[in-house]
Simulated scan of single mutants.
Amino acid sequence: MENRQTLEELYDGYILGQLSAEELMDFIQRVQESDNAPILEQLVDNSFSQHTIVVDELEGKKAFYRFQKRLQLSNDTPTPSPRTKSSLHKLWRYVAATAAILLMVFLGKQYSIQRSSEVKVAHYQSIQDIKPGNTIAYIENTNGIQTPLAAEGELFVRDSYLQDGSGHILPHQKVDEEWLNLVVPKGGKYSITLSDGSKVIINSDSKLSFPKHFTATDRHIKLRGEAYFEVSHNPEKPFIVETALQRVRVLGTSFNIAAYPEERTVTTLVTGKVNINTADESRSLEPGMQGIITSGMIQVQPADLESALAWKNDKFVFVKTPLTDIIKQLERWYNVSINIQAGSESLSQKTFSGTIAKDASFEELLKLFKTTESIKVEVREGRIYLMK
């Protein structure tokens, strides 16, 4: 019993890449022991149930023999007994499968490192180099492992796994994982269908934290950034969206929440009814209204639905929108740094109106502003500068 527990712990550490040199040698020695074959088979089978892996038999055998040689079992050790030799050849599939699983974990970690650089503001040499955003996102588990999602732009939460829009089952996701993060970097947009059937469309530079399975009493998620919700109706289990400044409670409805850090939090109701709660007060919204949080207080006013939902409909809609607010939207979608040149601060007071598709090039979008205001644009050291 003790041997099994130790082997399971070493196996888990090996999969996560967390073994010390001493522990790795211990694990290698235990892999060689034929008595451990049934345990290894069960551990690998369990891993297969949580990952979509295709192990090529020929490549698997090659991997095993390389592994065997590294252990100095092929040429530098006495000839193993028939029983040991037979058991070793049976183990090749376990080693190959384990290596494949570890490879996915390694790629996930490498992607984590890569993403940390990708989400940084891109540096461009010219306006023509700046491209619009796309369906880019990744899933992050409690261990910090990040997995890129397919370009189809959809993620589905199934009973015991996650599946992307291409039909692939995602690695690294355990059935008992409590919370996961769907992270959409600058230049991205993505959607997710939660376990209750509710659909969430997530804007650039946003993060949605969600459980694989909701509790028996409510459906609770967390949001940083912006998302549009189409909530499945369930009067027995309210749907709760928590942001830094509020909690929005609904039973079944459609609404938009913009809750970017250092910006005002705005909840816009399209259909149904929602309750907004802050530390200081509680207000209800009717369709076509929006709640704006300022200094902990909720201001309710009519909403311009076309403008508020434009991002979801792949458009920019500006209605006398201050240039400073427009810059924030453009920076998120085009993943650029836009600055108002010193001496041109008066531009920040300008407002603009117009509509343009979000798949427009950055160069096309700038024409929208130049039709009503003389604005010069320069690219210096990878950054965009606006000036009079």
Rank of each mutant, 00 (worst) to 15 (best):
V184G: 00
V266D: 03
G291F: 02
S160L: 11
S361G: 13
G144T: 05
R380T: 15
Q349N: 13
S116E: 14
E286D: 11
H213S: 12
S209G: 08
Q125A: 11
M387W: 08
R115C: 08
R4C: 12
I375M: 07
M104S: 14
P171M: 01
F106G: 10
W92Y: 12
P238R: 02
R158I: 09
N339M: 11
G144K: 01
R332Y: 02
L180E: 05
T135A: 13
T6F: 11
T217H: 11
P38L: 00
R383Q: 11
Q290D: 05
T243N: 08
M1Y: 13
L223W: 01
H89F: 12
L305I: 07
I130E: 03
S282H: 05
A227T: 00
T215H: 07
F229R: 01
V300T: 09
L223K: 01
L365G: 02
S295A: 13
Q329F: 04
L40G: 00
E373S: 13
D359V: 06
F214I: 03
Q5N: 15
I375T: 03
A310S: 06
I240R: 05
P171C: 04
K120G: 15
N335R: 04
L170I: 05
G153M: 02
Y65I: 07
P148T: 00
G167A: 05
T84N: 12
R219H: 06
N134T: 12
F48I: 07
A244L: 06
N3I: 15
E331F: 02
E140W: 03
E363F: 12
D218K: 15
F369W: 03
D35V: 15
G291T: 02
A310Y: 00
E242P: 02
A122R: 12
A357R: 09
T321K: 12
Q349L: 10
F156M: 07
P82H: 09
R4F: 14
I169T: 13
R4Y: 14
L16K: 14
K120R: 15
T253S: 03
N75I: 09
T351S: 10
E286Q: 14
I292D: 15
F316Y: 07
D205E: 12
S282Q: 09
L366K: 00
F64L: 01
D280P: 09
L24W: 06
S191T: 06
S374E: 15
L91P: 10
L194C: 07
A310H: 01
S191E: 04
Q163P: 02
T52A: 13
P302K: 01
F48G: 02
S337L: 13
G165E: 00
R4P: 13
A279V: 10
T324G: 03
W179S: 10
G197A: 04
A227W: 02
S74W: 08
T98C: 09
E41G: 14
Y228H: 05
S344I: 04
T77I: 10
L71D: 04
K388S: 13
D314W: 07
P235R: 04
F106M: 14
I338V: 10
V95T: 01
H213G: 11
E364C: 07
A96Y: 02
E281P: 06
L309A: 05
E2V: 11
R247Q: 14
R93P: 05
H233E: 10
Y161V: 08
